[in-house]
Design a protein around this nucleic acid. Structure first.
Length: 431
RNA sequence: GGAGGGGUGACCGAGCGGCCGAAGGUGCGGCACUGGAAAUGCCGUGCACGGGUAAUCCCUGUGCCGCGGGUUCGAAUCCCGCCCCCUCCGCCA
């Protein structure tokens, strides 16, 4: 959420900055409403000041035994007017709030211009895509042939876009989770948390999921609609909302949190897209990274977060590239962000496996997390960051495809073997 | 789900409907004392939103004692609804 003051003081600059992301029209509407709001606020406050002064006087006069019935009647009228004006003010406030939560974040000055992912900029590559002496197969073929990936029965139990992993397939999924968490907590300074997978509407609003992405969320049905709970689309939601409303001491920043959770997404509007295999699922596992930092720290922390996610791929020896998202593709809440894309031999291209973003003060303000500067002075909003470290299912896909062998089996990356009970190779599985 | 108790500032904890942004204590910051520290003493110590302003300093107004309503000239204090926490009972992985 942007600072209304910014909209008030520099609407033209904002409209320009948001040209690629949309939202210029919203800025204009908010600026108009904001003027109206301040006008009414002044009226109400002047009346309240009058009431406070007079009530004080009434109290004193009464104690002296004077007649105050006339003043009381006058204040009764003032009270009515205050009530009426307050209702109007509330309506304007609500309208502004409704508009404000729809305005996307302003891209950082360093973000490359552009409107779509076609304008994203490749930052670096790591590892050389392996050449196979045979036509590499896609993961769904490999997995189903080995009997470890079962999409048909998943559709029977739930619906399409769900998966069942069997035996060593499930074991590998679990190994990856453990491997990633150990790396981040033991070597990268993250604190591991275990968090709710169902959260309330307020949390979804504060983390930027609502109202814009309502149609992407699974939710519970409650007798009282206000008590609806939503399944998290990412652990970022729970981790970021943790400190909502708190003022943290600067000395305790940056906070670096990691959590493993399943993630639930409706994936509405993606019919026919990525339908093969388990690349795009309604339920998937993810190890998430979240940071809460000072404004001075956040952009360095973004770079190191990307490096933390990259390290997972390096340990697994999976070729990848890092892409910086352009202004038009950077995401609703993000000021700056990178995607990490892993090599897919069967597709002969890189596909997304992690996305790391700095939401900056936009995120901190929306979720209401501040910090008290060590040097003294007023508290200021923290910057919030998040990134996948990594999407577990997609990592499994990358392993199946990059480590596949001519005989249809799959080698297990050495770094993962201790976590997979020493398993060195994925071979045909049957019960 | 049932019965009872409770939600006040960073924390603990007072608070007759007006004199309460809120006693007292702890913590924290500064100063004094000290060779240095402890102890002690003195002073200070919220946030948001308006207005005065170019200003996050200063002055001023309004609001905030779980949240939302109501009563009243006036509510931390009275009334109603909701949320959360604690204890006991029931159910239960």
């Amino acid at each position: 959420m942007l600072d209304v003051k910014l909209i008030r003081e520099r609407p033209a600059a904002l409209e320009k900055a948001l040209a690629d992301k949309g939202g210029a029209e919203l800025i204009r509407q908010i600026a108009t409403r904001d003027e109206e709001r301040r006008r009414r606020l002044r009226e109400v406050e002047e009346l309240k000041a009058l009431r406070n002064r007079t009530s004080e006087a009434i109290g004193q006069a009464k104690r002296r035994g004077g007649d105050v019935s006339g003043e009381q009647a006058r204040m009764r009228d003032v009270g009515e007017r205050i009530k009426a004006l307050t209702d109007e003010l509330k309506a304007v406030d609500d309208a502004i709030q409704t508009l404000l939560v729809q305005v996307p974040n302003v891209p950082h000055a360093s973000v490359p211009p552009g409107r779509s992912d076609a304008d994203n900029v490749e930052v670096r590559r790591w590892g050389a895509p392996k050449e196979f002496p045979f036509p590499p197969r896609p993961h769904e073929e490999i997995g189903e042939a080995l009997g470890v990936l079962d999409l048909d029965r998943a559709a029977r139990v739930a619906k399409s876009r769900f998966a069942v992993l069997w035996g060593p397939g499930a074991r590998l999924e679990r190994a990856l989770i453990q491997f990633m968490l150990d790396l981040h907590t033991r070597e990268r300074g993250y604190t591991e948390l275990w968090v709710p997978h169902l959260v309330n509407g307020e949390t979804m609003l504060k983390t930027g999921q609502l109202p814009k992405f309502e149609e992407q969320l699974f939710k519970t049905v409650e007798a009282d609609e206000n008590r609806t709970l939503y399944l998290i689309p990412t652990a970022e939601v729970s981790l970021t909302a943790l400190h909502s409303g708190e003022t943290l001491l600067e000395a305790t920043l940056p906070r670096r949190y990691t959590a493993f959770t399943p993630c639930y997404r409706r994936e509405a509007g993606t019919y026919g897209k990525d339908m093969k295999g388990m690349y795009r699922q309604h339920q998937f596992d993810k190890v998430e990274l979240v940071k809460i930092a000072t404004p001075a720290q956040s952009y360095d922390e973004l770079e190191s977060m990307v490096a933390d996610a990259e390290e997972v791929l390096r340990r697994l020896d999976l070729p990848y590239r890092v892409v910086e998202r352009c202004a038009g593709d950077v995401g609703f809440s993000a000021a700056k962000g990178y995607d990490i894309e892993v090599w897919r031999p069967a597709l002969r291209k890189y596909t997304e496996i992690s996305s790391c973003s700095n939401y900056a003060d936009f995120g901190g303000r929306r979720v209401d997390i501040r910090y008290r500067p060590a040097a003294g002075g007023k508290p200021d909003y923290c910057h919030t960051l998040n990134g996948s470290g990594l999407a577990v299912g997609r990592t499994l896909i990358a392993i199946l495809e990059n480590y596949q062998l001519a005989d249809g089996t799959v080698a297990i990356p050495p770094a993962l073997r201790p976590y997979a009970g020493g398993l060195e190779r994925l071979t045909a599985f049957s019960v």
